[in-house]
Design a protein around this nucleic acid. Structure first.
Lengths: 346, 346
DNA sequence: CTGAAAGCGCTTACAG
DNA sequence: CTGAAAGCGCTTACAG
């Protein structure tokens, strides 16, 4: 009746059934419920199907079985190592389970991502990996109503309505600052990402302010926000040094910022860590090979991807509820931090 | 008859049609061929559909229309910036065109990737992005028979059976070595990725050997292969210095190797570039912020993703043939290279 | 501009 | 263990 846009390689199950002298049902079973088919028949069918280059039509199969084997991941960007690594692990795990991963990038602002996430579902995603707290009301409503298995990563939001596989960003940053205070630092600054619709940045800034205040240290308001770019880190560092040359410790909410900041210090003739201490976040591969090696908050990107994959798989394949789970961050102390020195003219 | 596994949010088109007092056909048209529906009717239908939270079932739509709007990308890994960046751009472009991206990672060896690529198709991919020359015979046969739109990236393979959006790896490396020879270097080494099923590495090594031979320089056989890891770059560098302390120029086939190599040199007390010149490949963000800034071959990862997305989109949406296209690499000369110095004790 | 009907290609209870 | 039949939820020629 209609035109056939796509030239399928084979005539579908019917053709295989005919060639094998069995019914369509049996061909289908040979693929999906092989135990129900007599062995010689099954072998023959599979052999013929392979020879004919037959594969079940994905849409037909999905429509009938109500299973797509597609999992969706909505992340800020793939152009940032920790998210790329998490998705890499997520995909690898799911792939070994026979499922596939569809990806969409949404940027760092979580306040208006409903359409993006929806697109994943409209392509057949049966479960969803998200990043950060769900701050979009439409998305929250949708997730509640649809009951689609979902997990959010990189956060451990107080609102437990969406299960998370993440960590407490507030505590992670607080730990780093605590360490710097213990070293004797009193003059702080922070290079942060944009806070718009980003609960991780909000939590880290809150931790920074609280810790500075609690310690009676200075720099509570020296929070500089910027997009996640190395050049940005360098430019912001220069500005910090201009506005507050007394600063002895800079907390960067990304290693990307930290490498830019270290580069800027070098250009301005400041030594790290003798003149200024720098802490990064993420523990990128290159962090330990920098000069000096970067002290940073290690974040378990691959681990979150693996746990999320497993949890969502169980939810889809065995109707298990997705349970929230916290993963650990770790402050990796390397050469970019030291006690504030006597050289430092304040 | 059968059990319904999934609790759909709405009763499908039928429910919307009933609520709007029109036929299923009209509801469908309101979504897919809006111009064919009287405006007031269309507005009403869309409004009701939105209120009911209705969305067409993806599999049913795909089965009937023979269009999935899913594009597949098979890449070595997402845990390597240039591929992640390419996919990021690929996905972003397709998303703005209303299509989605399904990703699978295959590792760097192209000789046995048929099943992986096939999985993409089995999930509904209508077109494929690949990386490197197609070296898997089954895949080549499949691509020929199925006529699925496909593009391969990062290569410009002589075998034109699969259209490529890439560059000539041989020439890119040859250019870098030419520059080093021009600087006066005579003692070379190369840190390469594994050559197994990787035409890019093979081409670069061939260029290295040819150029060294042509110039009558030394080091033709100093090609050290390793997985793409920073630590690997450091370890290999140490080995090179041990085996061939006379080496004055090291070509790294990845910035990841280069940063490791620079770190190893520093630890061994060698200065870059005074004692040894290092060239990377990829032009990662951090390359220019290293100390010294890294001379590297810039590779247009995002550009390839964008061009591939556009070409595949045209192929699927408008039956345009995919045409091969070369993109440009560029040797970015920065501080990590210099003429071999008089300091150098050979 | 709209509706009734066919059918996309499978899978799966059901009956044997 | 196997087959005939129903139906997954849409879209689209076809006829009006």
């Amino acid at each position: 009746m209609d035109d056939k846009r796509e030239q399928r390689l084979s005539g579908g199950v019917a053709a295989v059934a005919k060639a094998a002298g069995v019914s369509k049902s049996t061909v289908s079973r040979a693929f999906n419920l092989p135990d129900l088919v007599r062995e010689d028949v099954r072998v023959k069918i599979l052999e013929i199907a392979a020879r004919m280059n037959y594969r079940p039509h994905p849409a037909a199969r999905a429509l009938r079985s109500q299973r797509t084997h597609i999992f969706g991941a909505a992340i800020p960007t793939l152009d940032y190592a920790i998210y790329a690594r998490m998705v890499n692990e997520f995909e690898t795990r799911l792939s070994s389970l026979g499922a596939s991963t569809i990806v969409i990038t949404t940027g760092f602002d979580n306040r208006d991502v409903f359409e993006s996430v929806r697109q994943l579902v409209d392509r057949g995603a049966e479960a969803l990996l998200l990043v950060g707290e769900v701050q979009d009301a439409r998305l929250r409503d949708y997730l509640r109503q649809s009951q689609i298995p979902v997990v959010t990563t990189y956060s451990s939001p107080p609102d437990r309505s969406v299960p998370s596989v993440g960590f407490d960003n507030y505590m992670a940053t607080a730990g780093a600052i605590d360490y710097l205070i213990g070293l004797g630092h009193r003059e702080f600054a922070m290079i942060a990402g944009s806070t718009a619709g980003n609960d991780r940045q909000q939590a880290r800034i809150a931790a920074y302010r609280d810790m500075i205040a609690k310690a009676g240290a200075n720099g509570k308001d020296r929070v500089y926000c910027h997009e996640f770019e190395m050049r940005g880190g360098a430019n912001v560092m220069k500005q910090i040094l201009r506005d507050h040359p007394e600063t002895t410790a800079v907390i960067c909410n990304s290693d990307v910022f930290a490498i830019g900041a270290m580069s800027a210090c070098r250009k301005l003739g400041l030594r790290v860590p003798e003149d200024i201490s720098i802490v990064g976040c993420d523990d990128f591969d290159f962090a330990e090979l920098l000069e000096p090696p970067l002290t940073t908050i290690a974040v378990p990107a691959a681990e979150m991807g693996a746990i999320a994959a497993q949890a969502l798989w169980e939810a889809v394949a065995r109707q298990r509820p997705v349970v929230a789970q916290d993963v650990a961050t770790r402050l990796v102390v390397r050469g970019s931090t030291a006690p504030p020195g006597a050289w430092n003219v304040t």
